[in-house]
Amino acid sequence: MRIDLGEWQVAGNDSPPASGMDRPLAIEARGLVKRFDGFVAVDGVDLSVPEGAIYGILGPNGAGKTTTLRMLLGIIEPDAGLRRILGAERPHDVAHAIGYLPEERGLYPAMKAVEAIAFVGALRGLPLAEGRRRARRLLEEHGLGYAADRQIRQLSKGMAQQVQILGTLVHEPRLVIFDEPFSGLDALNQGKLERMIRALAENGTTVIFSTHVIAHAERLCDEVAIIAGGKVPFAGSVDVARDRIRPQVRLETRAQHGPWRAALPADARHEGAFWSFALPESGAEPLLRALIEGDAGILSLSIERAGLHDAFVAIAGEAAARALEEDKPEEMRR
């Protein structure tokens, strides 16, 4: 008999997950609204991002992610609602402490890589000489030292994007906001960026990023906001989002019939040699007891928590999930 509980823990299952809300907030937004020519792009968005968190804004293209980030940064003003960023009600008052990578990438093609990084830092108040020194160090640390004096036009698209990411970080911000940072990066450089984001958080930097690729959010984020149609139907920890769906049971038995069958939900699906169904609300122990006492002859039993993709479907709906899937690069589609 093989029993695999996966991430499911029978003991202590009801204990609430630790919440980032115990920490001070780096970003707080309430009721943000933005209209463009009568079209409501963002409709009453609430966000609370704890200091030091990795926070994802997850949704398909056109859901309102970029507009929300721009309102938080003060690039555009909300038509309604309040926001506070690093304790300031006016984002421009703390601009020196923020790093921002926009969705639209843009560097001066004639600039050398080291100068481009220093220039972006200077826009946030970092002296150019110090910016150049830090730029060379960052390029070396990230395996791009050989490209320091090359013009941006001489770099590959991926290398140029890495240079712009380093420019976002050169002034050592307390808060970093990335808009679709993984777009256009190959798998190797996506992995590098994930490691960079984790390192930033470990050093106390708050990182918020938007994405339409669930895998990045599931691997990286402490908390997420799911956005669809300009609204946020869910904001909170990844674990809480996943717990919106009961864990799934996959059961293989030696017996085909018997009193144990009464322990299975009415909607249990029989697929070949296996039964599949949602874990009953009574939990794993009563199920196991009924199967054993009913002589089911358990050959294998696994209990798996839902993934963030399934949670997204349950929270945002099938249409938003289809749009999310269509936005992904071909090689990443399920």
Rank of each mutant, 00 (worst) to 15 (best):
D310G: 09
R153M: 09
G307W: 02
N61C: 08
Y108N: 08
V224K: 00
A228C: 07
V170N: 08
P50C: 03
G283L: 02
A26T: 03
R132L: 15
S300C: 04
G52M: 06
L185P: 05
D327H: 01
D22A: 14
S276L: 13
A41E: 00
R269E: 14
D149N: 15
L86V: 06
V42N: 02
A228W: 00
E141Y: 10
T253Y: 04
D22F: 04
E202S: 15
L5T: 09
G167M: 07
E28I: 07
A26M: 07
R30V: 15
I85N: 01
I292T: 11
G145A: 07
E77G: 11
I303Q: 05
V120E: 12
L32S: 01
R250K: 15
V114Q: 09
I214R: 01
E318N: 12
K231N: 05
T211G: 02
E104K: 13
F277P: 14
H216R: 01
G87C: 07
L279C: 06
R136G: 11
E180C: 01
Y100R: 04
P17T: 13
P127R: 08
T168A: 04
V313P: 07
V120I: 14
L128S: 14
L200R: 09
M196S: 08
T67D: 03
A320T: 02
L123C: 14
G121V: 05
I76F: 09
G31Q: 10
E140H: 11
R219H: 07
A201G: 12
F277K: 08
H257T: 14
A311H: 08
E304F: 10
R150C: 10
L58M: 12
D93P: 05
H212D: 01
R334F: 15
I165W: 02
A241C: 05
M1A: 12
S156G: 08
I245E: 13
A95R: 14
A268G: 08
F277I: 06
T211V: 10
C221F: 00
A41Q: 01
E326I: 02
D43H: 03
R134M: 12
Y100S: 00
A215T: 12
S19C: 03
G52A: 05
N189M: 13
A217R: 06
G191T: 14
V238M: 02
E218R: 09
G158F: 03
D4K: 07
G56K: 04
A217I: 03
G131R: 01
Y100H: 03
I227L: 01
V49T: 07
G283P: 05
V176W: 03
A241H: 09
R333E: 03
R124D: 09
Q161P: 03
R322N: 07
A278G: 12
G184I: 01
I76D: 05
E51C: 14
V49N: 06
R261H: 10
S210H: 00
A11N: 14
I298L: 08
L301T: 05
R198C: 12
E115S: 13
V49M: 06
A53C: 07
G59C: 02
Q256V: 13
S210L: 01
R23A: 15
V120R: 13
L139S: 04
R246I: 00
G12P: 01
W8N: 14
I54Y: 02
Q151R: 11
W260Q: 06
G125R: 14
L25W: 06
I227Y: 02
R2H: 15
E194K: 13
T206R: 06
